[in-house]
Design a protein around this nucleic acid. Structure first.
Length: 256
DNA sequence: ATGGTTGCTTAGCAA
């Protein structure tokens, strides 16, 4: 089973790329973030024509997440269901082929000390509480998405430029550690303990050509799935060429 | 050098 997470930075702008990529890679599941459209605007038909059913939690202009699957999903949920009034579409979950999958877009946080930063920390705490309330570490579960957190300086091309900013701050790293402590592993880092690799490169300042990136997209797995993991990798090629997203897809292969 | 890029929406915000 191949499961992929990809911040597409607008599904409508990236549609042709996404379709060609799906035809080539044929994953079982594709988690998307930053759709930047409502469910009404989402291209269900085009994706259906290449073999995927889409479960969508959309929002006008910003955010938006989806789970695309070859087989029919069940138990689709949008948001944490924790009673918090929150307009931002950053979480959708579904069960596919016996695996519960979450597609997550963790808030960026803008600047340390801002309202957006406080929202990021609160949102990560709500995710931890959702795990405690609705999930079990013993179940097959994947958290896929743009976490907007580089877990370690090893995951940052120029740590001195990002020191204590929103993607690297000790508080957000601790918040991610709290989520992992519930019963998840960073599948990429488990598979490649020392590898230097990034999933996001800024559009500005020749970030990609200079490989000045950060590893902020992650697939977190519970033990029943980390045990089945045979590969985790970043599709760096998808960041190349005309009109790429600023993020590359990250995938995990699970043996059946 | 207070820069640079992209997307959504239309000049300002978010990333």
């Amino acid at each position: 089973m191949k499961v992929v997470t990809w911040n597409v930075n607008s599904i409508r702008t990236r549609l042709e790329r996404a379709l060609r990529w799906l035809e080539r890679e044929a994953p079982d599941v594709l988690c998307l973030q930053e759709l930047k459209c409502t469910e009404e605007q989402f291209p269900f038909e085009s994706l259906s024509e290449v073999g995927y059913t889409s479960s969508v939690h959309g929002q006008k202009t910003y955010n938006g997440v989806a789970i695309l699957s070859r087989s029919e999903p069940s138990d689709v949920e949008r948001g944490f269901g924790d009673g918090v009034e929150d307009e931002q579409a950053r979480m959708i979950s579904a069960r596919v082929a016996g695996v519960r999958i979450l597609s997550l877009y963790v808030p960026n946080g803008s600047e340390v000390g801002s309202e957006k930063y406080a929202y990021k920390l609160e949102w990560m705490q709500r995710l931890r509480e959702y795990l405690e309330r609705a999930c079990q570490p013993s179940e097959p579960l994947l958290l896929c998405g743009d976490f907007n957190v580089a877990p370690d300086d090893l995951d940052v091309a120029q740590p001195e430029n990002w020191n204590e900013t929103v993607l690297c701050h000790s508080e957000v790293r601790a918040a991610l550690a709290r989520i992992l402590d519930w019963g998840l592993v960073d599948s990429f880092r488990q598979r490649h303990p020392q590898e230097v690799a990034y999933t996001w490169w800024d559009y500005r300042n020749l970030g990609f050509p200079r490989n000045e990136g950060l590893r902020i997209d992650h697939i977190l797995a519970t033990e029943p799935l980390s045990r089945r993991c045979v590969d985790v990798a970043i599709d760096r090629n998808e960041r190349k060429g005309k009109k790429p997203s600023d993020h590359a897809p990250l995938y995990i292969i699970l043996e059946d």
